[in-house]
């Protein structure tokens, strides 16, 4: 079974769990590169893209954001929540 080195680590960790390692094309971080948008707590349109329906911060393993940018993003989201630009929790009914 051909395994490249990156997923071999995951492979070892849950070798027993699943025989077939889960391959996923590694998405690039949307904030790297030159044309990357600046993370700003006032820019709610950009921030909502990284929130789930319930208003929770999306984990970087799903939004493929690099760890440094994820910390910056999380801080911006928390500031926007403090200033009531973003809800802390969004009920199923209301789509703000």
């Amino acid at each position: 079974m051909r395994r490249d080195n990156r997923s071999s680590r995951d492979g070892e960790r849950n070798a027993a769990a699943n025989r077939k390692p889960f391959f996923r094309r590694r998405k690039s971080c949307p904030f790297s590169g030159s044309a990357a948008p600046k993370i700003d707590w006032k820019d709610t349109r950009l921030l909502t893209r990284y929130l789930s329906e319930r208003g929770k911060i999306m984990p970087s393993r799903i939004s493929a954001v690099s760890s440094g940018k994820q910390r910056e993003l999380a801080q911006a989201i928390k500031r926007a929540r403090f200033m009531a630009l973003l809800p802390y929790v969004r009920e199923a009914g209301d789509i703000a």
Binding site: K27, P30, R45, T48, R49, Y50, S52, E53, R54, K56, M58, P59, I62, S63, A64, A92, G93, I95, A96
Partner: peptide, 16 residues
């Protein structure tokens, strides 16, 4: 709400 960013597993559609 929710722009082009991929939703992935976490944001499954909500049952109102």
């Amino acid at each position: 709400q929710g722009g082009p960013g991929s939703r992935g597993g976490a944001g499954r559609p909500l049952r109102p």
